[in-house]
Amino acid sequence: MSAPNTSPASLNHRHLHYFWVVAKEGGISRAAERLGVAVQTISAQLKELEQSLGTTLFTQEGRRLVLTEAGRTALHYADQIFLLGEQLQEALQLQSAAASLKLTVGISDALPKLIAYRLLQAAIDLPQPVRLVCHEGEFDELLADLALHKLDVVLTDRPAGSRPNLRVYSHPLGECRMGVFATAELAARYGPGFPDSLNGAPLLLPTRDTALRGRIDAWLSARNLRPDVVGEFEDSALMMTFGRSGLGLFPAPTLLADALEEQFRARPVGGMEDVREQFYAISNERKIRHPAVEAIRQGAEKLPLG
């Protein structure tokens, strides 16, 4: 490569942003899809960035792009640059006490929406007006958007775990007991003799990729119960909607009993001992700094989730 131009003004931040997204997404095609630009555009601008820096940032291993040592160093600094940019924008917004505080939240499909509302209520009740922007989606997609700083926080039912090239932090918010709910007719039919009455009963469940499903399966197996699983749902609200139609019984947090009866005409059938649904806030920072996210964390401690 030609000798690099080391002047700070020579660093093209758009090129650096494209590099950052490629590194986070793990490939040029996925980065192009997320950014809405052509693959050729990203390839060309990555090449220009490498020429301006005088070093190679990626190497090809089979069909995968892998960061070189220089690329890993560049990613470390790019993380800080774009995080500081987000913090600068937030700091300027916070200078005006009258300005609303924007909170962009990703809500996992599996998280009950009534729980999400209760968690967000603490942010809404802040003295400073809060403007909520809520996105619902699958867990992995929301984490990708969080890593790209498109979201301030993700509310979900599981921790992020260890993921290469993804530096996010999981903050436990609490947990709540689970029960089985159904329409009045089904509750009257399967309530007596619960939980043995679940044998052969029509049951709606979360899909197997959700954290809660494994706990429910273990609970059923420990009691040698074999219900008739008539539906599986990624979206908990959709599962409850089908439950309201009378398709089957469904699990839900017991603390939502009043709301479930009001919104879904659902009544409790019985409790699921030892089954808990857990809630997490996932952020880009180990220590939460966004005041609305901190309010959610503190507010969760006061909720009767246990």
Rank of each mutant, 00 (worst) to 15 (best):
R34P: 01
R267T: 07
Q45E: 15
R215L: 13
A237N: 11
H17L: 11
L148I: 08
S283L: 15
L94I: 07
L148F: 00
L146H: 01
P159V: 06
V21C: 04
L120V: 08
D109Y: 13
K102Y: 04
A97W: 13
I288K: 01
L11A: 01
L119P: 01
K150T: 00
E301K: 10
A201L: 04
L155R: 03
L205V: 07
L101A: 05
L16V: 05
F250L: 14
P253N: 11
A300S: 12
A182I: 07
A70S: 15
S236N: 09
Q278P: 00
A201C: 05
M240H: 10
E234Q: 09
V37C: 05
P164F: 13
A266G: 07
D140E: 08
Q80I: 07
L247I: 08
V130N: 05
M272A: 00
S221W: 13
A160Q: 12
L255A: 03
V37D: 04
P112M: 05
Y77V: 03
A91R: 12
T210C: 03
S245G: 09
H171Y: 06
G71C: 08
S52V: 13
L65I: 10
E261G: 12
R63H: 13
M178Y: 11
R276F: 13
A23V: 07
A9S: 13
T6S: 08
P164D: 06
T73F: 14
V154P: 00
V21F: 00
S283G: 15
R226D: 09
L255G: 00
K47F: 15
L166Y: 06
I42E: 03
G62Q: 06
E277P: 01
T183Y: 07
L151G: 00
R30P: 01
F19E: 04
I81L: 12
Q60M: 10
R267P: 02
R118K: 15
L46W: 05
K150M: 05
R297W: 12
D157Y: 05
R297K: 15
I216P: 03
A70C: 07
K102G: 02
R223M: 06
A3W: 04
G26P: 03
S7G: 03
L83W: 15
G62F: 08
L111V: 02
L148N: 08
V105P: 03
A3T: 09
L57S: 02
I81H: 09
E90V: 07
V22Y: 02
L114T: 03
L151R: 01
P202E: 06
G85C: 09
P291V: 08
R244S: 11
S52H: 11
A182W: 04
A237D: 15
V105Y: 02
H171N: 12
I28G: 06
P195E: 05
I124A: 14
A147C: 13
S29A: 15
L186H: 01
L83G: 04
L249C: 02
V153N: 02
V37P: 00
L11F: 10
T73L: 14
L16Y: 03
R286Q: 15
T207I: 06
D79R: 06
K302R: 12
E175F: 13
N224C: 10
F233H: 04
I115F: 06
L148H: 07
K47W: 14
A122Y: 01
T183M: 06
P253S: 06
T156G: 01
G36R: 09
L256I: 09
A110C: 04
T55V: 14
N12S: 14
D274M: 10
